Simulated scan of single mutants.
Amino acid sequence: MLNVLSILIGLISLIIVIPSQIPLLGWGNWLALPLVVTGIVVGALSSTNAGRNFCLVIFAIAVIRLSLGGGII
């Protein structure tokens, strides 16, 4: 059950992260990061790793985008 919850949290954060890849919308990644971290924690508490790994990939995408934009853009 926690794995499904982690995947759902990851999908919601993915909906926020995808449009945030557009220039000048990078602030959306800052909104998505706490949600993704919550998904990682919930996924770590589950018995399987799929939800946690999905959230880790989304986290990596958001962090790389933030680092390319200098953390702001």
Score class of each variant (00 low, 15 high):
residue 56 L to W: 08
residue 17 V to T: 09
residue 44 A to P: 09
residue 16 I to V: 15
residue 55 C to N: 15
residue 50 A to M: 12
residue 19 P to C: 05
residue 16 I to P: 00
residue 24 L to D: 15
residue 67 S to H: 07
residue 31 L to K: 07
residue 66 L to S: 10
residue 34 P to Y: 02
residue 7 I to G: 00
residue 6 S to Q: 07
residue 33 L to D: 04
residue 45 L to V: 12
residue 68 L to A: 13
residue 57 V to P: 00
residue 54 F to C: 10
residue 24 L to C: 14
residue 26 G to M: 06
residue 58 I to S: 02
residue 31 L to W: 14
residue 66 L to M: 14
residue 62 A to T: 13
residue 53 N to A: 12
residue 8 L to K: 06
residue 25 L to I: 09
residue 71 G to R: 06
residue 13 S to W: 06
residue 49 N to R: 13
residue 45 L to E: 10
residue 36 V to P: 03
residue 18 I to G: 04
residue 12 I to N: 00
residue 55 C to P: 07
residue 10 G to A: 10
residue 29 N to I: 03
residue 5 L to F: 10
residue 61 I to M: 09
residue 61 I to Q: 01
residue 22 I to W: 05
residue 11 L to Q: 04
residue 38 T to P: 05
residue 16 I to Q: 00
residue 4 V to E: 11
residue 67 S to K: 09
residue 31 L to Y: 13
residue 48 T to C: 04
residue 73 I to Q: 11
residue 69 G to W: 03
residue 48 T to V: 12
residue 31 L to G: 09
residue 27 W to D: 10
residue 8 L to T: 06
residue 63 V to I: 15
residue 7 I to V: 14
residue 61 I to P: 01
residue 8 L to I: 14
residue 42 V to Y: 01
residue 14 L to M: 14
residue 64 I to T: 13
residue 61 I to E: 01
residue 23 P to N: 04
residue 45 L to A: 13
residue 27 W to K: 08
residue 44 A to W: 14
residue 34 P to K: 02
residue 21 Q to K: 03
residue 8 L to F: 13
residue 5 L to T: 10
residue 11 L to K: 00
residue 28 G to Q: 03
residue 50 A to P: 05
residue 43 G to S: 06
residue 65 R to D: 15
residue 2 L to Q: 12
residue 53 N to K: 13
residue 70 G to T: 11
residue 19 P to Y: 02
residue 45 L to C: 12
residue 62 A to W: 03
residue 13 S to Q: 11
residue 14 L to G: 14
residue 26 G to T: 11
residue 59 F to A: 05
residue 35 L to Q: 03
residue 37 V to E: 07
residue 57 V to T: 10
residue 22 I to A: 04
residue 8 L to W: 08
residue 17 V to P: 01
residue 56 L to Y: 08
residue 45 L to F: 14
residue 31 L to E: 11
residue 43 G to P: 12
residue 4 V to C: 04
residue 23 P to M: 02
residue 19 P to K: 01
residue 63 V to D: 01
residue 42 V to C: 03
residue 39 G to L: 08
residue 32 A to F: 03
residue 72 I to Q: 11
residue 7 I to F: 04
residue 34 P to L: 03
residue 73 I to F: 15
residue 59 F to K: 01
residue 49 N to P: 13
residue 72 I to A: 12
residue 57 V to Y: 06
